[in-house]
Nucleic acid binder design. Structure first.
Lengths: 182, 182
DNA sequence: CTTAGATAATTGCGCACGCAACGACCTTCT
DNA sequence: AGAAGGTCGTTGCGTGCGCAATTATCTAAG
């Protein structure tokens, strides 16, 4: 084709690329997610009086064994940096929805542990949120499409954030005093 | 609390809901998009020396008739508020990649218009970005899956942000000479 | 035991965003 | 024409996040 000669307009090649399907797909991904997220956030705030971020964090904890998770695990699962997670947990702690519990096996580490109040909050927000999800996109999709979407997104998630798919982690046994001395 | 209590509890209903497939799907949506976005942003910054947001805005303009768009249209298409868009265009204007052009038919309005420098920047970033998209998720998906994803996301986008799908807007059949002056 | 290197979580700093309030302008109704 | 109300874009303010540096602790090597 056009070799290094400066003849044909370089913009033509670029114009072709500007219409690339892949860009459109990436744009749809961004617009659909961002738009949906905004909608869900506004409705969570209006109906349940908390930001969507709070709900997501509380939900992760509620679904975890013993309703607690290491800070670093929670960070991995939420695509937040350790820094961002520290601040987020600060806010939840101030609201008495989460407590920091120091980890006995690693004195650097902390668990974020759901309080009773936090559990109440998240369970009472669950119904509204599921309704918002239906309104926001689930009702648009057939069961088959939902399955396709889940399969595709899982592939992407596992690829961009392998840490998030990890197994529930070595179990903390309550009365096990395995902190064997030296 | 009742660490050793067994038997039926009101939490059981909630526990069922906590495992709802819909929550998992929503979580996958969030994790996959956020993780992908972070990856794309870091690579754009590293290889092309600009934030992904800049590239997205410049790309929208490059794909628009006469390489310009009304501020409000651009805001709709990017899920930014008018406020956020004003600041973003400020930054691009400071970098001489975009110019504000007042709209002759509505003196309240402005076009964001791509400069030559801006066009260069976006076209030179196009190749790397497409490579990042392939690396980030497209290479994981069969053509069929890409089609399914596009169809599904388009439904969601049209539902959560109907304004973004609008036709290219009534064209100003002006002569192309309007931009030149100061 | 001692030392060097990795890892968990936090903090200072700067940046980008949304909301609400505002001024400028357009549109419609009387 | 004149007034009322809506729309376009910008600004003040507060918030949330990521990056880089820091402290405390764990782990590995000599």
């Amino acid at each position: 084709m056009s070799a290094m000669s400066r003849g044909p307009q370089p913009t033509e090649m670029a114009d072709q690329l500007l219409d690339d399907e892949r860009l459109t797909l990436a744009g749809l991904f961004a617009e659909s997610y961002t738009g949906l997220r905004g909608q869900l956030d506004r409705r969570m705030l209006a109906e349940c009086n908390m930001p969507l971020q709070w709900f997501v964090l509380l939900l992760r904890l509620a679904r975890s064994p013993d309703r607690r998770l290491r800070m670093s695990d929670l960070a991995d699962q939420t695509s937040l940096t350790p820094s961002g997670l520290t601040r987020a947990i600060d806010r939840l702690t101030d609201a008495r929805l989460v407590e920091r519990v120091s980890c006995p096996s690693d004195r650097r580490g902390f668990f974020a542990a759901l309080t009773d109040k936090g559990l109440d909050r998240v369970t009472s927000a669950l119904g509204p949120h599921l309704r918002h999800l239906d309104d926001g996109f689930l009702s648009l999709l057939s069961p088959e499409e939902q399955g396709q979407l889940a399969a595709i997104l899982r592939k992407i998630r596992d690829h961009v954030n392998p840490g998030a798919a990890r197994p529930p982690e070595p179990i903390p046994d309550d009365d096990a005093t395995t902190v064997a001395a030296s």
